[in-house]
C-alpha cells in the first residue's frame, strides 16, 4: 500500500503512481457533500482531522456511537483505500472539506459512473483519484465489495482481480502533476508574464 491508512496526516504533494487496495462499497446514488461531511463540521480553519467526521450522520448514532451496520464501520472495511459509490458521487456544495475528510480517513480513490465536477477538481488537487468507469465494470464492483483492485495512473487503467483491466479518463495535466508530485500553483505562478499581459490588455 503506497500510503498509510486511516491516520491523520498532512497532504504534502507526493507523487502517486498507483493505488492498490481492497474496495469498500457505498451503493447509494447522488451522495452529496453534505453526507460526506455535514456542514456543522465546516466551522474549522484547518484541513486536519476531518476523517473522524466523514459520513458522520450515516456512521454514528445520536450518541456518537458508531453504527455497527454502516459499511465503513465493518471490520473488513478497515484499511480499504478505494471507495466504490453509486452514480453522481460528490454532488452539491464545493466544500473541499469533502476530499480532505476522505483522505484523512484513508481513502485514496473514489470510483463511480459519474462524479460531480467540483468534487473531481477538488479531489485531484489533494491526490484523491476520482475514477469514472463504464456501467458494467461498476456493476461488477458494486456486487463484489472487498475486491482487490489496482488503479494504475501511468497507464490509466483499473486492474480487476480476474486480471481484466479497464481504461479510465483523467485530465492530462492533473495526471501529470499527480505522477510527478507537482503542485499546480507553481505552474500558475510561472504564467506571471502572460497574466500581466492580459491585465494590461484588459485593465
Amino acid at each position: 500500500m503506497p500510503y498509510p491508512q486511516n491516520t491523520s496526516q498532512s497532504y504534502e504533494m507526493q507523487p502517486i503512481k498507483s493505488v492498490k487496495s481492497r474496495t469498500v462499497v457505498l451503493p447509494s446514488t447522488d451522495i452529496d457533500t453534505d453526507q460526506i461531511i455535514p456542514a456543522r463540521f465546516l466551522r474549522t480553519t484547518t484541513k486536519e482531522g476531518l476523517g473522524k467526521q466523514l459520513f458522520s450522520d450515516w456512521r454514528y448514532d445520536a450518541n456518537g456511537t458508531p453504527k455497527t451496520d454502516f459499511v465503513l464501520n465493518l471490520p473488513e472495511s478497515q484499511g480499504a483505500a478505494i471507495l466504490v459509490a453509486g452514480n453522481n458521487f460528490g454532488c452539491g456544495s464545493s466544500r473541499e472539506h469533502a476530499p480532505w475528510a476522505l483522505m484523512d480517513f484513508g481513502i485514496r480513490a473514489v470510483i463511480s459512473t459519474e462524479i460531480a465536477d467540483i468534487f473531481s477538481s477538488n479531489a485531484l488537487k489533494n491526490g484523491l483519484l476520482p475514477l469514472v468507469i463504464d456501467k458494467a465494470t461498476h456493476a461488477w464492483l458494486m456486487e463484489h465489495p472487498g475486491a482487490d483492485v489496482e488503479i494504475d495512473l501511468e497507464t490509466t487503467t483499473l486492474k480487476l482481480p480476474d486480471g481484466k483491466s479497464v481504461k479510465f479518463p483523467i485530465e492530462a495535466f492533473a495526471r501529470y502533476c499527480l505522477l510527478n508530485g507537482i503542485d499546480e500553483l507553481g505552474y500558475l505562478l510561472n504564467q506571471d508574464d502572460a497574466i500581466s499581459r492580459h491585465e494590461r490588455a484588459y485593465p
Partner: peptide, 22 residues
C-alpha cells in the same frame, strides 16, 4: 462558478485558474 479552497488559493495568488473548457 464555484471553486474549492485550493483554487481559492490559486486565485488569491495569481488572479487566474487552470480550467478545462466545459
Amino acid at each position: 462558478f464555484g471553486i474549492g479552497t485550493t483554487e481559492v488559493g490559486h486565485v488569491l495568488a495569481t488572479q487566474s485558474l487552470l480550467q478545462r473548457r466545459p
